[in-house]
Write a protein that binds this DNA or RNA. Structure first.
Lengths: 208, 208
DNA sequence: GTCTATACTAGGATAGAC
DNA sequence: GTCTATCCTAGTATAGAC
């Protein structure tokens, strides 16, 4: 039954994402992944051959939502709209895919030794498109003359922090887990900060 | 000779900071630390008893510059001055102590399992003081009514990113290493973004 | 296709010579 | 106080029964 195969691979990847996110690659034991997935350890090796290989599969599986967040840059050309949608999308990723975000952060922080070239290339391409778009807004006088790259770094960092550094956030706010309302406040405030900070003219935006 | 003792401990801690930062705790081999420090492995155990213990010592040793960055909040009461000085101090830490920043980021990301309580307490106390000060500026109408915690999260994230995610930054900018000028640009832009974004009135600031 | 039982090795830790 | 040689556990990986 190929269905079982698919299902088990899915279970293992899901379990692995969480544990890799929580502990990091090296600290993760394949036994723990197997346990979390409710399968014997040998099964993990049967499906993925090696721990490294499984890790690569996890990376590929978590990349999707991260890349997806950049779509606003491809769908619109109004700075206020795009930046707001982008920030909200990035915060949503942190909220809904915290493990993906952490696995990635850890991978990048250690110099991306396992990141497949084509994924790295896709990320670079998105960055290129986004920063060109920002530059074009600047050229058209729609916002202050900021350095597009640094603006992106700021947005990436301050949205991902809600996933990657959740421990710290939880300590500071005194809440075990952020509520939907907390994420909304974070997104609202960051949007206002960035738009106002870059001198972007407010336009009619959807109330997402 | 107690001098040798001091010197060797110093060498080991220095080497360990770099390797823990680059690889993470679990992926780091004590042999590599010993090699980097130019000492035999047993020496590392002689001085630090265990890998975990060495790691804790590293954490304590790297905390100093990180805590130091918050001094502007204790020395002044003008929002433009304090925020600018704080952002510049944080960026300087990322530039001058990238390993410290990474070790910490990694520790926090994994739920701070090794962070000594007193250090965590100091960080919380600093956060408390900083956010109270921000709130007082808001109450006095010196800046927009933002959520102080979220503002701090944004500043932390976007300054630390220059150390923690240097790989990504290097890929995007196409530069192997950021120059002094690059750090200055980053600090200038982030300062302007935050001050303007929070509606802080510009005041006479030192040209640091 | 699944899993139990086992082989193999890396790497943390230490005993004991100098 | 220093370091060489060795121990031993933990954890990856697999052989082979079901």
């Amino acid at each position: 039954m190929a269905k079982i195969r698919e299902r088990n691979r899915e279970l293992i990847i899901q379990a692995a994402s969480e544990i890799f996110a929580a502990q990091g690659f090296a600290a993760t034991k394949t036994v723990d992944i197997a346990e979390q997935a409710g399968l014997p350890k040998a099964n993990v090796y049967y499906y993925f051959k090696s721990k490294k290989n499984l890790y690569r599969s996890v990376i590929v599986s978590v990349i999707e939502p991260l890349l997806q967040a950049a779509t606003p840059f491809y769908q619109d050309d109004d700075p206020a709209t795009v930046l707001e949608q982008y920030i909200r999308a990035k915060i949503r990723v942190s909220q809904q895919h915290p493990s993906a975000s952490k696995v990635f952060a850890s991978e990048i922080m250690h110099g991306a030794p396992h990141l497949p070239d084509d994924i790295a290339a896709q990320m670079m391409e998105q960055t290129r498109v986004s920063s060109h778009k920002i530059q074009s807004w600047i050229d058209r006088g729609l916002m202050d003359p900021v350095d597009p790259h640094h603006l992106l770094f700021t947005i990436w960092a301050s949205t991902q922090t809600y996933a990657d550094f959740d421990w710290q956030i939880s300590r500071v706010t005194g809440k075990d887990k952020m509520t939907q309302r907390d994420y909304d406040i974070a997104a609202d405030q960051l949007t206002r900060l960035i738009l106002k900070g870059c001198g972007v003219q407010a336009t009619q935006t959807s109330d997402a």
